[in-house]
Design a protein around this nucleic acid. Sequence first.
DNA 1: ACCCAGGCCATCT
DNA 2: AGATGGCCTGGG
Length: 296
Amino acid sequence: MTIEINERYFDPHLIADSGQCFRWYELKDGSVAFSFESFAAIIHSMGSGKIKVNVCDCLNKRKTDDKEIKDKIITYFDLHTDYEIIIESIDSSDKVLSAAASMGSGIRILNQDTWETILSFMISQNNNIPRIKKSIDKICKRFGERIDVDKIKEEYGLDCDWPDELSHTFPGPFDIDPEKLDDLGLGYREEYIRELVYKAREEDFFLHTLDSLDGIYTDSLQYKKVHEGLLSIKGIGNKVASCIELFGLHCLDAFPVDTWVKKIEGKYYDGNFPKDRYRGYAGVMQQYLFYYERQQ
DNA sequence: ACCCAGGCCATCT
DNA sequence: AGATGGCCTGGG
């Protein structure tokens, strides 16, 4: 099915390059392909903020009606959040943040699958984006389900160059064999992932506690409980936990500090970005700053 | 050849 | 509490 979206604050290319997702791929014709849950999609920019999204349920297991798919896409793209208000709230005397937000105004915080986010960001530690993507691609190919590429081509038109990296879905904890994680380029993270899969299979922590932190502040009790739970997992430290909260649990107040953000905080903010001023959505500012610093 | 890349953990002071 | 070094591995 096709969904048309008119949203000024949405640039699929920026999101694909934002580092929050690792299964978005830019195609030669300028469109952007991605896969999430059992869906496959291609985004075409139509100019002047108009976007066309072709989506299909590529596993064909059950009939998903069009309205359900549309709702899923709207939530996934975070279209319920008003990014214009967020950007307008920026302290105009903060020239760095203003410039960063102006450059990165097309970035949104996706509502990604929690499990996929946990696994992906555990791989991301001390790692670079191409290699992260490669490892995730190998995991999907080894344990994920093959998606029906013909169905996609039928939906989009025959000549689409659907990327080979999106030939399979992202596998769940029970799809992954923890003893067959060799040769995935995981390095020393292999042991972390193995334990993570076992833990995810056994504990209900992932299934119940980690629903969503949408609208939850980082100084609340509920947040602290989730944060500590994540930290108790081997291979998840403060930074990775914050990424999981921001990108997987949609806690927009979470503010992951990586080397890029640390760099920009040191250069312009005397070591500390005033995230309290942006209480409730500091994570969006983190994305602007991160993108800005990486462009320099 | 290095050295780092969107860190974490263990081991020290 | 805070500061270090080691760690898999591919690319500049």
